[in-house]
Design a binder for these strands. Structure first.
Lengths: 246, 246
DNA sequence: CGACGTGTTGAAGGAGCTCAATCTAAGTGG
DNA sequence: CCACTTAGATTGAGCTCCTTCAACACGTCG
């Protein structure tokens, strides 16, 4: 490592999930020009409507994508954690069609679009890994379409709890059976296409069914197999490297 | 042109939407090895669960992506038309997490994954255009999440009619105000997360409101501005080249 | 002709929404 | 240290949009 604490290390770790990288690939990533920043909960990485020139790596904390519809309704489209390259989507397309915001306090690194594109084509392994990464994001979007379109409230919530736990575990940030879910019930509602009131009742039902227990924001899954069954959850769509089985 | 009728021409046309291509770029695409095939309505391009080795270009006709949930419920995730590279998603990830099927009779060209990746990195304009293409797909997925999560039936249906018309027009296949929508009400229901019965009633309401009229599968938009308003439709998320304004 | 896929309509039921009140925990300023 | 505020969680009651169940109409195709 050329520097003491490489800011972009989480990006290397994430991309290696998709494609083995050699020394040169890794160095190229770590040498990317970037600007570090810390945001408080609610702070914006990009705002819907902005024109964009930088991409953004999430270095620590949790963030989310959201889109405003019609009369002020919000839809949360994705949740992101350490290592996620959070704004390739908006930056390559030059025009943000949705916002990305901090859920917790987060550390981010802004990287100029040109630098990303340059590395992607000079180091094909890196480029391919980034391409994979956007495709996996797409796969998760598709699962969310199916979930919010065709599953009932109980199933949707169970599904989200499985996905979040498993992704946190895959990122080495938590145990799938016990983690902090840094979302208010309002935000859960916007992610699931429900009202906060109904989210509250549905959480209660998951508890009564003996599938989870919770205190404040922390979730403990007391019966993973049944939670996954209720949520119709299969981890295929996450395309995780073959180490974390369902 | 090296051959009489270049099978892969629609791919060139589509990618040029995202990025200007020079002679060499175009030739490289047209020279891609591929296998042509014709499928009847309902025929599979890929099946959920298959392992994949080829990508697929849609040369003519209309296709759709779908995912099966829990007890036989289906969710239609996207609709595709000429020029769409329909299976980068599954092929690069090597494992199909959803199916892609013909909606009408379609002509397709299967292209080996390696050839795609090879061209993408030897011709960066092509690679970037393909990357854009997958990002635009992602953008459309996000809009569908928001739509199926936060809009009511009338709005969802109006939104879908606007999107389909505009995309057909952008692909040079139809007029946004008058086109063939090759979907049964059952399929519309699966795309919108509704029941076919409710789709039927909602179509009727759109007619009664004077926004559309229809005979068989053909749709005529009688009031685009109001249809777009009801559907909360803005074409931003399609990232179309600056020629087709909303 | 009968069968099947698709579209259309009616009536009844339910999952989730809206409106509204109450409760808790965590600040914040005096 | 305590009033005061505020964001979030929780609970109740009534309503509605959409679903489910059930017929029936229409065209195509064996």
């Amino acid at each position: 490592m050329t520097r003491d604490t490489p800011l972009l290390l989480p990006m290397v770790q994430k991309l290696q999930q998709w494609k083995p990288l050699d020394e040169a690939d890794r160095d190229a990533i770590l040498a990317l020009p970037c600007r570090a920043e810390t945001l408080r909960p609610g702070g914006y990485i990009v705002r819907q409507g902005d024109s964009t020139t930088t991409s953004c790596l999430l270095v620590s904390g949790v963030a989310f994508r959201q889109k405003v519809v019609d009369g002020g309704g919000r839809s949360i489209l994705a949740i992101h954690m350490r290592g996620d390259i959070v704004d390739l989507q908006n930056s390559l397309l030059r025009h943000a069609d949705h916002s990305v915001q901090a859920l917790t306090k987060i550390d981010v690194a802004f990287i100029p679009r040109e630098a990303i594109v340059d590395v992607a084509f000079r180091f094909p392994n890196v480029g391919l890994a980034m391409w994979y990464d956007t495709l996996v994001d797409g796969s998760i979007f598709r699962e969310w379409i199916a979930s919010n379109s065709r599953r009932d409230a109980l199933s949707r919530l169970a599904h989200l709890l499985c996905e979040f736990g498993l992704r946190m575990e895959a990122a080495g940030l938590a145990d799938r059976l016990c983690y902090e879910l840094p979302m208010t019930q309002d935000q859960l509602a916007d992610a699931l296409g429900l009202t906060p009131i109904h989210v509250n009742r549905t959480l209660k039902r998951l508890e009564e069914l003996g599938l989870i227990s919770r205190t404040q924001r922390s979730v403990t899954v007391t019966n993973w197999a049944n939670l996954a069954r209720v949520g119709d959850f299969s981890c295929d769509y996450l395309h995780l490297p073959a180490s974390t089985p369902d």
